[in-house]
């Protein structure tokens, strides 16, 4: 049974990492917390659901639409965030909280409060390896998450653009002095973040029910993983995603499914209590 826990933990954890990456990138580059992250994710899921339901296209073709929706919303968000005054971190939390309420009500208006799920029939079939069972849904989730994480890793590590982004994350002033357009990097971070959310959205719609207020849980797990990893460390994000998902799976097996929500909250508070100056503590 514990192999199943580990396998599902790794699968879900990789997906958690995919969800957290956009949040971590935006926070790292612009120093703003986007509490509407989960809402954009759910909105991208709704876009995929709507397309899948009305036109009957396969899941694969819903990704471009979901990415487009996330891009539009995130670029508007970027305009709003760029107008914020100091203290940036706190004001960004308050404002994006307002954006989250706005998006929740928009989704309630357009999609109603009913629970929606993108049902892909083949996702419930699967492969047996001795005692281990893997559904095609889990395999798709794992493969796509790792693929996107890998692509982002290549972008950040092996391109000039990635270097500029990492420089901005490490030290804004020094990056600006070196001739990097820090403002443009902020827009780029939101754009890449939006693409990541847009790719995660349809997958989210396959594994979780979509409803207007579903986003808070996703936001919390993105915050938890980001705080765990610190900024600018993709490997830390993967580790954080796996640990969170494994801890959740263990909690579900040991105590029951209703205790799952507690795991992320306790992990976040513990991490914050251990590092009271926040992730950027050493610079302040």
């Amino acid at each position: 049974m514990w192999t199943t826990v580990v396998v599902s933990g790794i699968t879900l954890g990789s997906f958690y990492t995919l969800i957290a990456m956009g949040f971590a990138l935006i926070f790292g580059v612009t120093r703003t917390f986007n509490l509407a992250h989960g809402e954009v994710l759910v909105l991208a899921g709704y876009a995929a659901y709507w397309l899948w339901k009305t036109s009957g296209v396969s899941l694969l073709f819903t990704f471009p639409a979901a990415v487009l929706v996330a891009l539009v919303v995130c670029l508007i968000l970027q305009r709003l965030f760029s107008r914020l005054r100091e203290p940036l971190e706190l004001n960004s939390i308050v404002m994006s909280f307002g954006v989250a309420i706005l998006l929740q009500n928009g989704m309630l208006f357009f999609f109603s409060g009913d629970y929606r799920l993108i049902r892909v029939p083949t996702f419930n079939q699967g492969l047996h390896f001795n005692t281990l069972y893997l559904s095609y849904g889990q395999l798709t989730l794992l493969a796509l998450s790792l693929l996107v994480i890998g692509l982002l890793y290549l972008l950040m590590r092996h391109t000039y653009l990635g270097k500029a982004l990492r420089a901005t994350i490490q030290d804004r002033e020094a990056a600006a002095l070196a001739g990097i357009n820090v403002g443009a990097m902020g827009i780029l971070a939101f754009a890449i973040g939006a693409i990541l959310i847009g790719l995660a959205g349809p997958l989210y719609g396959c594994v979780h029910y979509l409803y207007p207020t579903a986003g808070l849980q996703a936001t919390l797990l993105a915050i938890t993983i980001t705080i765990f990893a610190g900024v600018g460390r993709i490997r830390g994000l993967i580790l954080g995603g796996w640990i969170l998902a494994l801890a959740e799976s263990c909690a579900v097996v040991l105590f029951g499914a209703s205790w799952r929500e507690l795991v992320g909250a306790v992990m976040l508070i513990t991490l914050l209590a251990l590092r009271p100056q926040g992730i950027l503590g050493r610079e302040q």
């Binding site: 917390f33 509490l35 203290p87 971190e89 706190l90 960004s92 939390i93 308050v94 919390l220 915050i223 938890t224 705080i227 929500e261 507690l262 992320g264 909250a265 306790v266 976040l268 508070i269 914050l272 209590a273 009271p276 926040g278």
Partner: peptide, 14 residues
């Protein structure tokens, strides 16, 4: 600041 706000947001779950 921001970290206090995030911690309180998570704390409600307990």
């Amino acid at each position: 600041g921001a970290y206090f706000a995030l911690a309180t947001l998570a704390f409600v779950e307990i």
